[in-house]
């Protein structure tokens, strides 16, 4: 499973980077989204993939019984997904505005502010 995940994450990173390096703004946004997905899956995989009991303390107990799934990475990923969602939404609106003001989707045309 780890190998499959590693390949998947690698592919996401590769395609994300490829998309970011394209000239089209739309592809840039897709690339950024792919990069953040790759990072989320990386956290998920790094926290070990196992089938364990949910981390809930049983009735009458005071501590978790031994094989339980680590809840932290899921909380981290959930936070990261929400943030990523907000950022992607902003980025989508931004490129729409950029397109409206500049009339082009080509990043190579947007060089007038470079030094």
């Amino acid at each position: 499973m780890n190998t499959v995940m590693a390949l998947l994450i690698g592919m996401l990173y590769a395609s994300g980077m490829y998309m970011v390096l394209r000239r089209s703004m739309v592809k840039l946004i897709i690339g950024l989204a792919l990069l953040s997905h790759a990072a989320n899956l990386l956290i998920f995989t790094m926290a070990t993939l196992r089938r364990d009991r949910p981390p809930l303390i049983d009735e009458g107990e005071t501590a978790l019984a031994a094989p339980y799934a680590d809840p932290v990475p899921q909380a981290l990923i959930l936070t990261a997904i929400v943030i990523g969602f907000a950022v992607s939404a902003f980025a989508a609106i931004m490129i729409y505005r950029v397109y409206q003001t500049t009339g082009t989707d080509d990043l190579d045309q947007l060089h007038t502010t470079d030094s």
């Binding site: 790759a38 990386l42 926290a47 981290l76 950029v98 947007l110 502010t113």
Partner: peptide, 24 residues
């Protein structure tokens, strides 16, 4: 808008790298 798109892109790439580093 031209400045913004560069600012946003590179900072998002940085965030993605930061997140990956956190995962590792």
């Amino acid at each position: 808008m031209e400045g913004a798109i560069k600012y946003v892109t590179l900072n998002l790439v940085s965030s993605a790298i930061f997140l990956a580093a956190l995962g590792l």
